[in-house]
């Protein structure tokens, strides 16, 4: 029971957090039509093909492995994410480019950037729309990993988990991710196509 209750509280806090975010961004949605349209299209587009889900599952799986697999987790005997803190930057080094890589280079490969950049909308609108789409995809993925890791921690610690510590750790992951997304969006757009930016990232 305690587990379900704690999980519910965490989800409610998440929801409130997302609500505040949407509220803060609402002027953008109201006045920057193009940014909102691009955000919606890219977010829906990412989850309308299987690759998006594959990356999401990989991310959740890897972050759970990193958190609970190392023996240090059990030796320390603490219900926290110390081990994940060590490995998450490495996981994100693969996961973040998987989101950002295609976001510009697909447009260029398909030639659709010509349509986007000749819309009656400033470059800023399009770029911010793309960035928010990437951020939304990342946020959704991180929430899945959060729910999964929290459930495991709760069941291991019989419901006795420091919720504040857990949530602020995830806030840190979220902010790290947002910073990495912005870097990831600049780098591949400098190259010509999706495949060549993959090579760049993996080499």
């Amino acid at each position: 029971m305690a587990i379900a209750q704690a999980l519910l509280i965490m989800l409610l806090i998440d929801l409130a957090f997302l609500g505040v975010l949407v509220l803060l961004l609402s002027p953008l949605f109201l006045y920057k039509h193009a940014a909102y349209a691009v955000l919606k299209r890219n977010f829906v587009g990412y989850f309308s093909n299987p690759t998006g889900y594959v990356f999401l599952c990989m991310f959740v799986l890897l972050s759970s492995f990193a958190a609970f697999w190392p023996h240090e987790f059990f030796t320390a005997n603490l219900a926290n994410l110390d081990q994940l803190n060590l490995y998450l930057p490495l996981i994100m080094l693969v996961f973040i480019p998987a989101i950002t890589m295609s976001i510009w280079s697909d447009e260029r490969r398909q030639g659709t950037d010509e349509l986007l950049l000749t819309l009656p909308a400033g470059d800023f609108d399009i770029v911010i729309g793309k960035y928010l789409a990437a951020a939304a995809i990342f946020t959704a993925s991180l929430m899945f990993s959060q729910i999964s890791n929290f459930t495991v921690l709760l069941s291991l610690a019989m419901g006795d988990v420091d919720l504040g510590l857990f949530l602020t750790t995830y806030l840190g992951y979220w902010l790290t991710g947002l910073a990495m997304l912005s870097i990831g969006m600049v780098s591949p757009s400098a190259s010509f196509s999706g495949s060549s930016s993959t090579c760049r990232w993996s080499s």
Binding site: H33, A34, Y36, A37, V38, K40, R41, L115, L119, P120, A121
Partner: peptide, 8 residues
């Protein structure tokens, strides 16, 4: 729909 939205 996307282009209509983008054009406001």
């Amino acid at each position: 729909e996307f282009f209509a939205d983008a054009r406001g």
